[in-house]
Amino acid sequence: MKLRVYLTFDESTVREPLIWKLGKEFNVVTNIRTAEVKNHMGLVGLEIDGESDVVEAATAWLADQGVKVAPIEQDVIEG
């Protein structure tokens, strides 16, 4: 499956090559579609392609590294 997510990096993660590591750790194809990186923060629109369970494990790993993983719609639960 192909998952489309926004990753938010904060001060502690923004300098880490986490998307490169992700490709090493998991059998997924990553495709950056948009990115904005500043000193204290980074925002990356990423496509992650692979077997469903691998993609799921890959996103869980990103979250464990301290990256916020959100669907490209961001918050869909409204008031």
Partner: peptide
């Protein structure tokens, strides 16, 4: 919250 949100998407 984040998991609920992701499921909805």
């Amino acid at each position: 919250y984040d998991d609920v949100n992701r499921l909805c998407s």
